[in-house]
Structures are given as structure tokens and as C-alpha cells.
Design a protein around this nucleic acid. Structure first.
Length: 446
RNA sequence: GGGCUGGUAGCUCAGUUGGCAGAGCAGCGGACUUUUAAUCCGAAGGUCGUGGGUUCGAGACCCACCCGGCCCA
């Protein structure tokens, strides 16, 4: 490879985007950038020829892609430069780049024209590179553990694996409504039935619900399932995945986030659901966890209560409002009440609880894991309960095809879901999920 | 859905008690043969988010709406 101080001066060809142009009469300087860095072009009447030189200045604009050839040398100020003897415009820019020194700050334009945001703002460009490193690190950990990466349907005839409103679409060839997946859990479990013992998928899920700083209707989830494993194995795996992601993105497990440091070094804190609720609301699920006790607690904390809410919904609201925001450092919330999730196995010592944890960071849910329910009879009962009117708007349909698979025998297993966007948020130190999604959807301007 | 806040030139932003719409950068014209946020001279650039209203006069005040941001539900 040619070096700038080689003798004789090596003849090189460079190409990239013009990001600066200083016209100074008979000599001009241009700044050329590509993915690897920048180099200065030295444009001069003598080396380029009078006609070509004049034409170049006429036609060149900042933003153009150009290729240039000529000897590599240093200018008087020792700046490595190409003395341009041949010049070609490879692509013309018709619109100007965002102001070089003021950048692009308007949030709306940054989201609507992300390419300009990435072009103008180094921190944004690096953040999306970090996102890719994080996803690679997650894959590496799972691949190293012998997990098989698979692809399952995005379009599903029955939605399941979570409680959410789906996007509905029409599958013309099959002449019926289909749903964009809200989760891929039930398909990955079918693969456990099939005999694959470790599977995972990183995919987009779609939930037709609100948009705010931590929710995007189209988001990325990692789900993995491991046969003959339990919640304790998932706890280990979650810590390993996140620690590896942190090191990949930041080179450390201690992440500066605003004025605090998030420490992802295992082991993370563990709190039981009952203890957390008790500490924040003085509701003790062991003494009086009735619907009316939960309603009283909600009212006492100025949470507006819809009379139609189920006990599960009340619990969720209390936890969301009073408990979860208090978990700043990575925390496992464990031993959930049984009605909070129909797909998790009950605790062997107490059927009122399930073997489930969620991980919270910065007050935000980041992961969810169970020892998976693999008893087809209980699964049917729990799904039918979840489908009943008592769950109102949160009711989810019974997936008969999934139950059929379970009836053929699913090995005991642990399963883990990890919200990739939220993991990236925590590691990148941003508080809006749109900052980690390349092309977030916005309302039409007009 | 509620509260707060923003939308002015391509970009970043000013705009005072209501009185001719501003700056820097970019762009355009000119000078300049070693600059690097080049410099200097000149000219130009506007549906002040949209629609109403108040007023002799509205970018500013009032009402409604559109599109964002932050917080809350």
C-alpha cells in the first residue's frame, strides 16, 4: 500500500464524498471522506490543466461523490494530500448537506431523514454501529453455547406468546386474516417439541399499541429456549448476554448513563415480586392480595382504576407505576403471581407463583424469562383462562395448533426474551427508543 | 388522552412594550496559486407550521388545527 512519504511519490486513486471545498484562486483544497477516513485533495491549475481546473471548480459541490487520481504528497503544512491530475464526479448532490459545524439538531428532521442525521452526527453514526456490535455479541454468546438460530413466521394465523394488540393483515393466497407476530415464543417451543434442544431467533415483533419514549410498535426481540434448563439457567444466560453486549459496545460492563453508572457485572440484584410490591404499596400478597385490596392500593397512590380491570391488570398497573421505576441498576424481579403469565411453569413449592423473572434497567423492562410450562393439559387450562372474558381487552386467543404440538411432548425448558432496542438504549445512554431505531415511523407531515 | 414546550432562509438560531423580516454558515457573483471552520468584496435568499380572529398595523396577542420534543396518564 502506498504511503505518503514514499519516494518517488506514489500515484494513487481515491474516491469518496466531498465534505469540504476551499477555493483560493489558482489552487484549491477539497476534503474527501469515505468510510475509512478523510484525505485532502490538492487541486491546482498546473497539475490539472487550466480548463479542467476551471471546470472542476465550476461543477464541484460539497456532497458530491468524486474520484481523484495523482501523486500522494505533503503540503507545506504537512497535510497528506493527493495532487489531483485526474478527477471524476461519480455522483452529483443536488441538495446541500446539513451545515458542517452546526450539524443537524431538529429531532423531526433527524428521524424523517435519518441518512442526514447519520451523515452529520458522529455520535449517531457510532450508536448504530454499536447496535450492530451488540446484536453480533448476542449471537456469538448463543452460538458458542450451541444454540441454533432459526426463522419462524412473521405472519401468524393466531397471535400469541404475549398480551398485546396485533396488527391484522390479509393473506390473499390463503383467503383469511393473519396477524403480524407479537412474539415468536409459541413457534420456538414447537421446535423444542421437534427435538432441537437450543434455539433462538432475533426478529421484529409488532404490537399495535402506543408510541412513546420506550415503546415502538415495531421492535426487535431476542428469544431463546433451552431444553432441560430452568429459570436459574436463564438467569445465568441473561447476565452473560448483557455483559457480553456491554463489552462489545462499550468495552466495559460499567456504563455511564447521564449522571449515574449502570453496572452490568453479574450477579445482578434479585427481588421477589411479593417483597417489591409490599415495599411500595404495603399490599402483602400472602395476607390479602384480593382484587379489592389491589384497587384500594391503586387509589391510595392516585392511579386511576377502571372497574373492569382484572386482578392481573391491577397488579401490572401497580408494578408499572410504583415498583418498576425504582429498579435502576439491573435487577431480577422474580416469583410472579401465576395469573401474570399463562406460559410459565408454577413454582413447585407454591402454585400461586410461577417460575418467572423480568429484568429491569433504568426503570424499564428489558428481559422476561420462564421455566416453560410444558404440561399440555395445564397449558390448555391456563390458555382458556387467559382467553376468557375476565381478561377483557388483554384476552389472548387459544392456539390449538400449539397445544397439539405440546400434546406430543415438549421437554422441560427455560426460555428468555430480551428486548434488543432497550438493551441498546441502556448501553448507548439514550432515553428515547427512536434514538436506537434507524427509521422510526412518524405521522405524515401535512 | 392531559400538562409543559418548540415549528422564522437549505442548516443553526435571534427577533425587545404589537410598528419596514435578521445574523452566522451554506448557496450565487467577484478577488485570491499551500488552505484546512481559509480570507476579503458584492448581490440575493421568507406562505414566520396551517386556518381563522383582535388591531390602523400581528412573526409576536386570542381561538382552532397540523407536525415534533419532554413529562404524566
Amino acid at each position: 500500500m502506498a504511503r505518503v512519504d514514499d519516494e518517488p511519490p506514489p500515484d494513487v486513486v481515491v474516491a469518496g464524498r466531498l465534505v469540504g471545498l476551499r477555493r483560493m484562486g489558482g489552487t484549491s483544497f477539497a476534503q474527501l471522506r469515505d468510510g475509512s477516513g478523510e484525505v485532502q485533495l490538492f487541486l491546482n491549475q498546473q497539475s490539472l490543466g487550466q480548463v479542467a481546473y476551471r471546470h472542476a471548480l465550476e461543477v464541484l459541490d460539497v456532497g458530491d461523490f468524486v474520484s481523484a487520481g495523482g501523486p500522494l504528497f505533503r503540503t507545506r503544512t504537512a497535510e497528506p494530500s493527493v495532487r489531483v491530475e485526474r478527477l471524476q464526479v461519480a455522483a452529483k448532490a443536488l441538495r446541500p448537506l446539513p451545515a458542517k459545524w452546526h450539524g443537524l439538531h431538529d429531532a423531526e428532521t433527524r428521524f424523517r431523514q435519518r441518512y442526514l442525521d447519520i451523515l452529520a452526527n458522529d455520535d449517531v453514526r457510532r450508536r448504530f454501529e454499536a447496535r450492530t456490535s451488540i446484536v453480533s455479541a448476542l449471537r456469538r454468546v448463543l452460538d458458542d453455547h450451541g444454540f441454533l438460530e432459526v426463522e419462524t413466521p412473521t405472519l401468524q394465523p393466531v397471535y400469541g406468546g404475549g398480551a398485546a394488540t396485533p396488527f391484522v393483515t390479509t393473506y390473499a393466497a390463503l383467503n383469511r386474516d393473519y396477524y403480524l407476530r407479537i412474539a415468536d415464543e409459541l413457534y420456538l417451543k414447537r421446535l423444542l417439541v421437534a427435538g432441537y434442544e437450543r434455539v433462538y431467533e432475533i426478529c421484529k415483533n409488532f404490537r399495535n399499541e402506543g408510541i412513546d419514549s420506550s415503546h415502538c410498535p415495531e421492535f426487535t426481540m431476542l428469544e431463546c429456549y433451552q431444553a432441560f434448563a430452568d429459570l436459574g439457567d436463564m438467569r445465568e444466560l441473561a447476565q452473560q448476554l448483557v455483559a457480553a453486549a456491554a463489552e462489545a459496545a462499550c468495552g466495559t460492563r460499567q456504563i455511564q448513563f447521564d449522571d449515574r453508572v449502570l453496572d452490568f457485572t453479574p450477579p445482578w440484584r434479585r427481588v421477589t415480586y411479593r417483597d417489591a410490591l409490599l415495599a411500595s404499596t404495603r399490599v402483602d400478597l400472602e395476607r390479602d392480595g384480593s382484587t379489592s385490596a389491589l384497587k384500594d392500593a391503586a387509589k391510595a397512590n392516585e392511579i386511576p382504576v377502571d372497574p373492569s380491570w382484572s386482578r392481573a391488570k391491577l397488579l401490572d398497573e401497580l408494578m408499572k407505576t410504583l415498583v418498576e421505576p425504582t429498579f435502576v441498576q439491573p435487577t431480577f424481579l422474580e416469583r410472579y403471581p401465576t395469573e401474570t403469565a399463562p406460559l410459565a411453569k408454577r413454582c413447585p413449592d407454591d402454585p400461586r407463583y410461577i417460575e418467572r423473572f423480568e429484568v429491569f434497567v433504568n426503570g424499564m423492562e428489558m428481559a422476561n424469562a420462564y421455566t416453560e410450562l410444558n404440561d399440555p393439559l395445564e397449558q390448555r387450562a391456563r390458555m382458556e383462562e387467559q382467553a376468557s372474558a375476565r381478561y377483557g381487552a388483554d384476552a389472548t386467543p387459544v392456539d390449538e395448533d400449539f397445544l397439539l404440538a405440546l400434546e406430543h411432548g415438549m421437554p422441560p425448558a427455560g426460555g428468555l426474551g430480551l428486548g434488543v432496542d432497550r438493551l441498546v438504549m441502556a448501553l448507548a445512554g439514550v432515553t428515547n427508543i427512536r434514538e436506537v431505531i434507524l427509521f422510526p415511523q412518524l405521522r405524515d407531515r401535512s
